Amino acid sequence: MLKLDGVAAFVAVADAGSISEAARRLGLAKSVVSERLAELERLLGARLMQRSTRRLALTEAGTAFLTRGRRLLREAEEAVAEIAEQKSLLAGPLRVSAPVSFGTLHLGRALHPFLAAHPGIELTLELDDRFVDVVTDGFDLVIRHGQVHDTRLAARRLATSRRFLVAAPAYLEAHEAPASLDALSAHRAILYANRETDWRFETPSGAVAVRPRPGLRVNNGVMMRGAAVAGLGLALLPTFLCHEELAAGTLKVVDVGVPAEGAQLHAAYPLDRSASAKLRALIEHLRRAFGSPPFWEKGLRLP
Rank of each mutant, 00 (worst) to 15 (best):
I121E: 03
L58P: 04
F131Y: 15
T67D: 15
D129M: 05
A117V: 01
G120K: 01
P119A: 03
L107M: 08
L105G: 03
V96F: 06
L125N: 04
T67M: 14
H112N: 09
H112L: 11
T124R: 13
L125R: 08
S101N: 00
A98N: 01
H106F: 05
L72G: 04
G62A: 06
G62N: 03
S52T: 15
A81K: 06
E85C: 05
G92A: 08
V100Y: 06
L94R: 00
T104L: 10
G92L: 06
L94C: 07
A110R: 05
R70Q: 13
P93W: 04
D133F: 08
F102L: 09
L111S: 01
A98S: 12
A117D: 01
L56F: 05
L125H: 03
D129I: 04
F114V: 00
P119T: 04
T63I: 14
F65I: 07
A81E: 04
R130I: 13
L107E: 07
L94F: 00
L56C: 02
R109L: 04
F102N: 08
A116C: 04
L73M: 09
G69N: 10
L72W: 13
G62Q: 07
L115A: 07
D137H: 12
H112S: 11
V80G: 10
L56T: 02
E75H: 10
E60K: 12
P93V: 08
A76V: 10
G69A: 14
L107R: 01
L105Y: 09
D133R: 10
V100T: 09
A81T: 02
R109M: 05
T136F: 13
E60Q: 13
G120M: 06
L111H: 00
G120L: 02
R130M: 12
G62T: 05
L90R: 07
V134C: 08
A61M: 06
A110S: 02
L58W: 07
R70S: 07
L115G: 04
A64L: 14
T59G: 00
R68H: 15
I83A: 15
V96W: 01
I83S: 15
A110M: 05
L58M: 08
I121D: 06
A117N: 03
L94W: 01
E75C: 09
E78V: 10
G62C: 05
G120C: 06
L111C: 00
D128M: 11
S88Q: 13
R130C: 12
Q86H: 12
A110I: 01
D137R: 12
T124A: 12
D133P: 05
R70I: 06
S101H: 02
V135N: 09
V132A: 11
G69M: 09
E77F: 12
L111G: 05
F65H: 07
Q86G: 15
L94E: 05
T136L: 14
P113L: 00
A57G: 08
L123Y: 07
A116S: 10
R54K: 11
L127D: 03
S97Q: 10
I121C: 00
F102T: 00
P99K: 06
L89Y: 04
R109N: 04
T53C: 14
